[in-house]
Amino acid sequence: MKRRMLLGLGIFLSVGLSLLPFLWFVLTSFKSQADIESIPPTWWPSGNLGFYRTALFDHRLFDYAFNSLVVAGSTTILALLLAIPAAYALARLTVPGKRGVLAVLLCVSMFPQMAIAGPIWRLLDSMGGLNHRWGVVLPYVALTLPLAIWILASFFKELPPELEDAARIDGCGPWSTLFRITLPLATPGIFTAAILILIYAWNEFFFALLILTQPEQQTLPVGIALFQGEFTMPWGELAAASVVATLPLIVVVLLCQRWIVSGLSAGAVKG
């Protein structure tokens, strides 16, 4: 009995504390300017979609959202394309210099963005990638690869090797073994990696701030961070924009909760 009460309390606390702050933003987004500016603030909105209208149409939120979608989608696909074979090789094959490769990957996952920002910026400058969406996709891919490889490799290791051995005896090379045999079995792992990369790329702020300086290419986080009004902080529009920016992620989390939890769990400790 006591245990159940404790559990109930735990659920209440963790769910409440997780959601409550954001709910305040959701409430704010439906308020009117007068609701927001009153001191003390009002609890409940008087029901008003005006902030969504201005956020979406006056603050180019659609453009930002589209750019975020393009950047996050491309990053995810490219990173998976590169990470899957690499993870497979590291998990199953003898890679000469494997320790070195692992060391490089581990090292990369520790880099502060600042340490690489300047040089990446100059690199992209010489490649003509500044102010292009692909200019942020490349560093995003490089920075998400270690985590993706790590999760995928631990998944591949969990799979029974017998099928692959059979395929190989039948004459399939490593590439085709990977695509024909291993990949279909590792769908959950791939899905997890994809979600993690997607969330990273959707949320990343720093490189986007440096590399994309035109509103036509900027992503949602940059748009929201640089959100400023004329003579008061536009909290209402900001709240509306934040809700719009977060909604897709909430949907992803609601739909894919199982994958995220099991994927990270499997990747984390069993590896």
């Binding site: 696909i77 394309l81 692909w134 695509f179």
Partner: peptide, 30 residues
């Protein structure tokens, strides 16, 4: 996984899939 096909077959499928992915990427890069 029903059957384990021969190598050449694998390769051609793979190429197709690669082309499809490139297409997807192109579409997504906008």
């Amino acid at each position: 996984l029903q059957s384990v096909p021969r190598y050449p077959l694998c390769a051609s499928h793979q190429r197709q899939r690669g082309a499809a992915l490139l297409l997807v990427c192109f579409v997504l890069f906008g």
